[in-house]
């Protein structure tokens, strides 16, 4: 009994390690394809469109509503202490450091990550990847690399847009509707938010999330069982694994960057 359990656990560990190894080799080969995009920028542009532009609406809408809710909730808390002037920095810091990168990554995994997995999984199921192989075109360079790069480039831009529009949303609620002093809102924010410590670290976070989420998405697609259920399972895995990875990495990065 116990031996069986142990064996199951052992094989799980070995399987996970093997998959991680495969995923790493896969990533390395795909990274090798980044140089191709210098010669064929349209490959990247196409993917920036489907990964970035098509995610814009959900990111902007979520950002705006998160910002407005933050403005309202923080106002209600801070006004009791008469410190509603620090609403600006409170909102901005939580957005720039945490909520912007993390929520964007989660939304991105749901919107763009799942689409990438499904697309690549279906390309595999319909033998489009095999055709590329037979045409002496490396699918990792031709199909995976542009998507990976587009994801890595889009994520920080989307996260910045999320934070920016969320701050505007909280400005609307706090300053325009609830009467927080406009000067205090912005100047306290500027005094408290540091470009290097906060903004820069937030961007680094979102670059890391971009790499990890897109990596998971393209690998799951490439590795999917080429059937209908296989692709559907892979799509689910992308969203679930991405969410776990983002939350775990966020904790580790936060501890590294802001813990002193």
């Amino acid at each position: 009994m116990i031996a069986d359990r142990l064996q199951a656990l052992g094989s799980l560990v070995i399987d996970s390690l093997r998959r991680f190894g495969q995923a790493t080799l896969f990533l390395m080969r795909a990274l090798g394809g980044f140089t191709d995009m210098l010669r064929k920028p349209h490959l990247l542009v196409d993917q920036l469109y489907s990964v970035g532009v098509l995610s814009l609406a959900i990111i902007l809408m979520s950002g705006l509503s998160v910002g407005m809710v933050l403005g309202l909730q923080m106002y209600n808390t801070l006004v009791d202490f008469g410190t509603e002037d620090s609403l600006g920095p409170a909102v901005a810091l939580s957005l720039v450091r945490e909520l912007g990168p993390v929520l964007t990554a989660l939304l991105f995994a749901g919107r763009a990550g799942s689409a990438l997995t499904a697309e690549i999984g279906l390309m595999k199921a319909t033998e489009q990847l095999a055709v590329l192989e037979m045409m002496a075109v490396d699918p990792l360079r031709r199909v995976i690399a542009p998507r990976l790069l587009a994801g890595i480039l889009s994520m920080p831009l989307l996260a910045a847009m999320f934070s920016a529009i969320a701050i505007l949303g909280s400005y609307l609620v706090a300053v325009q509707m609830l009467g927080v002093d406009e000067g205090a809102f912005w100047s306290q924010m500027q005094a408290k938010v540091d470009l290097y410590e906060d903004v820069y670290n937030g961007i680094i976070k979102s670059v890391v999330f971009g790499i990890v989420v897109t990596w998971i998405a393209v690998f799951e697609g490439y590795d999917a069982t080429p059937t209908t259920e296989g692709v559907s399972r892979a799509t689910t895995r992308t969203v679930v694994y991405s969410a776990f990875a983002v939350l775990l990495l966020d904790f580790m990065l936060t501890a590294l960057m802001f813990g002193d």
Binding site: A92, S163, A164, V199, G202
Partner: peptide, 8 residues
């Protein structure tokens, strides 16, 4: 905006 308006 994050660089110029939000931080300083």
């Amino acid at each position: 905006m994050l660089a110029m308006r939000v931080s300083n």
